[in-house]
Nucleic acid binder design. Structure first.
Length: 941
DNA sequence: GTCTTATCCTAA
DNA sequence: TTAGTTAGGATAAGAC
């Protein structure tokens, strides 16, 4: 044995025989004996498994053969919770006399920071399912905090060198509205702040020590903040180590367990790849809001500022590292300024958690799937299915084999019906299969336990099993009901129940809980199919997943045929119905009810909705229960651009539309600039809602003209793309990758990392330069006044998306001639960049302020010919200067208002705020204009 | 020029 | 030690 720090004298505690059955495949002669091996510690399981697998162990009376391991790869927490029937975030009761309170009399010293310490046997407590009274949520204490560091100029703070100068904290009880503690720890003095406690320390190590004391005193159940896991907590622990603050890292509830930082790489198809730190804080859950948002929301930017604006319609100051240092080195007022900012950053995560109902939704997910809360942020989708599968398997004496993952061939997925592209002025009905994949699995009893191997099939009666469209075989429900269908039925019926309860419930908090629950149930049901198809997973079964998709393909085809064969003139209907599009579980039907000339949309919509409902019912009748086709909505009008790309007005009632629905087009994609997204959105609104295509064309022309004359704000031109691989893994050159690489050279600390989204703009360069050479950091562009390649934005960003939405309406030729030709496409001359890689090719020469002619004598403001009109030109420039000054003052005040004080300088440099870009641009223009004016000052001819 | 490939992001 | 699925459009780079 290599090490034995736990002092284990006996690794194997017990070996027994249990009668079980493998979950995988249908076996006629059900249960067989299994060896159940009990190990002393979780970490001894893997080596024991390896020994048995390789067949080197001689088990008395069973011999030394190679054993197939089962359930040796189950996480310890999951194992314990499954065995004791605990689900995440639920209540347990320690019955009287079953536990013993630890006190001075019977225990040498406490091992935890808990108020009460007891000993209880693992199987002598009661676990309550979270129903009724036990669905209540405990009043958790939640600590939200934010730190500020004093970095050096242009370098991202490093804990080995740069001090922590402030730590702001907010503590709230779950369910309450306001924090009951608001404070800020500051290094050096800080002027008082109304409503917050200010705790100032002259020494950094003292501040850190006191903060750790504070955390232990507050004793939070949940620790939150923004990017705390990968930044704040990590920084504090490393900083405390640098300063040798010994008691600092004991932040959890186990007294002698120090918090340690571990690096881990989390990668999934859903979330991409990202480097994460893991810090143990026993008894306290780290619930980093950034990680929640990355999982649950697709956003263009994930800075706290962008997120606050998106969800709370509120900006926050974004202060650069170098400025933070200046504020710290100022006086107690400038430090107060910083503290106010820091407090806000501690408060915002709490407000966002509340607004997005993260805690409740995550708790419900933990309850529904049975996993601990912390797993939901640190692990993937699979563990949730495994947890449910294990619980169900236990009921039926089934065991799950250990599967060695290997990549195999892909299987065929869903059908996308070839779209009949075009602009539909007639109402289009949409019919959907609700919960298609779960329904298929239930209807056809698809499960691990019902999968019929070929040999077994030969012994079976043909009416005892089915053959799926992908030629796989499963036994019927009458022979044996699968446990996946059972799990799914439970999830779907629980969801129905939650939705019904939600309707009846009046208490707002319970309403939130129920809504979170129905959402969790829906997501869980839908992820079971994905689990069976995950080849690099715990228990893939392609027979199930490919049967599911094959049934789905068959069903969508059949639906199309059924609708078109019934709803036609031959059968006495007014028109021939046509399925114009469909994807996976839906069909879009044009029943041919025309756009009424009278303008009475309501009547036409009523007719289509009625037809849709009847047709859905008719089609449902052709499929096995619980498969059901439902009428969902009508699109009117409907613009079908391509597969997975369309837009339309969404009606669920005949009177008014619910929303404008856009799928797959630029308005919902994050990899184009806001200019394009907003332009397309506006045009679609004008076309679909106002039904004014010519108005849309005019609008588009105006925007194009604005762009070419540089009247468009730079924030509108920022494109963002995710860095999905490391530098050397990329084989093709790309704009955002190249830029990230260049930024790493400028300042490695603040450059984008793996998994981050990289914002960039395309700058002007000589003709034919590849786009990946023209990408640049928007802030850098702004600070150095680098010209934008407006032609690129017209040709490579705007034009194609615009043509795609206008062509079906105007026709190909007309769309092109209207939009991309004419006066509005005239460009203002683009100047070459004065900095960066291309600066070498430009030579700066002064021009005449009057006529822009090159000057012989560069010291003069104007040329000889313009000389007589010098006062006039001077006047003009002064007018412009005044205009710019006024504009700058206006933007400045706006920013002051945002930061909440009209008496202080604006420090914000938020890359997500359009005002910031404008303010910065005007500031630059102002400086340039002042330079121009100054040229008048020294006439010398 | 055209065609293929890599990449991103979305639909369901 | 960990990772839900396939279909598919759009774009830019790079081969030819």
């Amino acid at each position: 044995m290599r090490s034995n720090k736990d002092g284990i004298t006996q690794a194997v505690l017990a070996v027994g025989v249990v009668i079980k059955e493998s979950i995988y495949g249908y076996h006629v002669n059900r249960k067989v004996p299994f060896l159940k091996i009990t190990m002393a510690l979780p970490r001894l399981i893997a080596p024991a498994k390896r020994l048995l697998e390789t067949g080197v162990v001689n088990v008395p009376s069973y011999g030394s053969r190679a054993y197939q391991p089962y359930e040796s790869n189950i996480d310890f927490e999951i194992r314990f919770m499954v065995d004791t029937g605990i689900v995440g975030c639920s209540w347990i009761e320690l019955p009287p006399k079953k536990y013993q309170v630890r006190s001075k009399d019977n225990a040498p010293s406490p091992i935890s920071r808990c108020q009460i310490e007891v000993d209880v046997a693992w199987d002598s407590f009661i676990s309550y399912p979270p129903e009724g009274e036990w669905a209540k949520v405990a009043p958790f204490r939640i600590l939200s905090f934010d730190i500020e560091c004093a970095g050096r100029k242009g370098i991202f703070p490093e804990p080995e060198k740069d001090p922590v100068i402030q730590i702001a904290n907010m503590v709230i009880r779950q369910g309450e509205k306001d924090p009951f503690i608001r404070n800020v720890f500051t290094l050096n003095s800080c002027a008082p702040i109304v409503g917050s406690q200010v705790l100032s320390y002259m020494k950094e190590n003292q501040m850190l020590e006191k903060w750790a004391d504070f955390v232990r005193e507050v004793d939070p159940d949940i620790i939150t903040g923004y990017n705390i896991q990968n930044f704040d907590i990590t920084y504090l622990i490393n900083r405390a180590k640098t300063l040798n603050v010994k008691p600092f890292p004991f932040l959890g509830r186990v007294i002698n367990r120090a918090s340690v930082i571990k690096n881990s790489m989390i990668q999934s198809k859903q979330m991409g790849r990202r480097e994460n730190k893991f810090i143990n804080t026993e008894g306290r859950i780290q619930f980093d809001l950034l990680l929640v948002l990355l999982r649950d929301y697709k956003l263009r930017s994930y800075t706290l500022n962008a997120v606050s604006f998106h969800f709370l319609q509120e900006q926050k100051e974004d202060v650069q590292h170098s400025i933070i240092t200046d504020l710290q080195n100022g006086n107690e007022q400038t430090r107060r300024r910083l503290a106010v900012y820091c407090l806000k950053d501690a408060m915002l995560p709490l407000r966002l958690l509340d607004k997005l109902m993260c805690i409740i939704n995550y708790m419900e997910m933990a309850r529904v799937t049975g996993v601990p809360l912390s797993y939901l942020l640190s692990r993937g989708q699979q563990i949730k299915v495994v947890s449910q599968l294990l619980r169900k398997a236990k009921e039926h004496d089934l065991v799950i084999p250990v599967h060695n993952p290997e990549q195999g061939d892909d299987f065929t997925g869903a059908t996308v019906i070839e779209p009949v592209k075009g602009y539909y002025k007639d109402p289009i009905a949409t019919l959907d299969f609700s919960s298609l994949y779960p329904s298929i699995m239930i209807a056809h009893n698809l499960c691990y336990t019902t999968l019929l191997p070929n040999q077994t099939r030969n012994q079976m009666n043909p009416d005892e099993f089915i053959k799926t469209p992908s030629d796989n075989y499963f036994v019927k429900k009458s022979v044996r009901k699968g446990i996946l269908p059972e799990i799914l039925e439970n999830l779907l019926s629980a969801r129905k129940r939650a939705k019904e309860d939600l309707k009846k419930e009046t208490d707002p908090l319970r309403k939130k809980v129920l809504d979170g629950r129905q959402l969790a149930l829906k997501i869980s049901a839908n992820s079971v199919y994905g689990f069976t198809g995950a080849q690099v997973g715990k228990l893939p079964c392609l027979e199930i997943s490919q049967s599911v998709t094959a049934f789905g393909r068959m069903m969508i085809e059949k639906t199309k045929t059924l609708v078109e064969e019934k709803y036609n003139i031959a059968n006495g209907y007014a028109q021939n119905a046509k399925v114009i599009y469909g994807d996976t579980d839906s069909v879009m039907v044009n029943f041919g009810i025309p756009f009424p000339p009278s303008g009475d949309h309501v009547e036409a919509l009523k007719q289509v909705m009625e037809l849709g409902k009847v047709a859905a019912e008719y089609v449902s009748g052709h499929f096995t229960s619980p498969i059901k086709l439902e009428f969902e909505k009508v699109y009117f009008p409907y613009l079908l651009i391509n597969k997975k790309r369309y837009a339309g007005l969404y009606y669920t009632k005949p009177e008014t539309h619910d929303k404008m629905d856009c799928k797959g087009i630029e308005t919902v994609r994050r990899d184009n600039c806001p200019l394009v997204a907003n332009l397309i959105n506006m045009c679609l609104q004008k076309i679909l809602i106002e039904r004014d295509p010519s108005g849309a064309v005019e609008y588009a022309k105006q925007i194009i003209s604005d762009l070419l004359c540089s009247r468009v704000d730079i924030s509108q031109l920022v494109i963002t793309k995710e860095l999905t691989k490391t530098d050397d893994e990329y084989s093709a050159k790309q704009a955002h990758v190249e830029l990230a690489h260049r930024m790493k050279k400028r300042d490695p600390g603040s450059a984008p990392n793996l998994g981050d989204r990289v914002p960039y703009v395309i700058i002007a360069a000589s003709k034919g330069t590849a786009a990946y050479l023209k990408s640049e950091d928007p802030i850098f562009v702004l600070e150095n006044n680098i010209p934008i390649d407006t032609q690129y934005y017209l040709e490579n960003q705007i034009s194609k998306p615009l043509l795609r939405i206008f062509e079906p309406i105007l026709g190909e030729d007309k769309a092109k001639s209207c939009l991309l030709k004419g006066d509005h496409t005239r460009t203002k001359t683009v100047v070459m960049s004065k900095v960066g890689a291309l600066a070498a090719f430009t030579k700066k020469r002064a021009t005449c302020i009057g006529c822009k002619a090159l000057l012989d004598n560069e010291k003069n403001p104007i040329c000889k010919h313009c000389k007589p009109r010098e006062p006039e030109f001077y006047q003009n420039e002064m007018v412009q200067l005044n205009a710019l000054e006024e504009k700058f003052a206006r933007l400045w005040t706006q920013c002051q208002r945002c930061q909440g004080s009209l008496h202080e300088d604006v420090l914000c440099t938020s890359r997500d705020c359009p005002i910031f870009y404008m303010r910065k641009k005007v500031q630059k223009d102002l400086a340039d204009q002042e330079k121009v004016i100054s040229r008048f000052g020294i006439p010398s001819w």
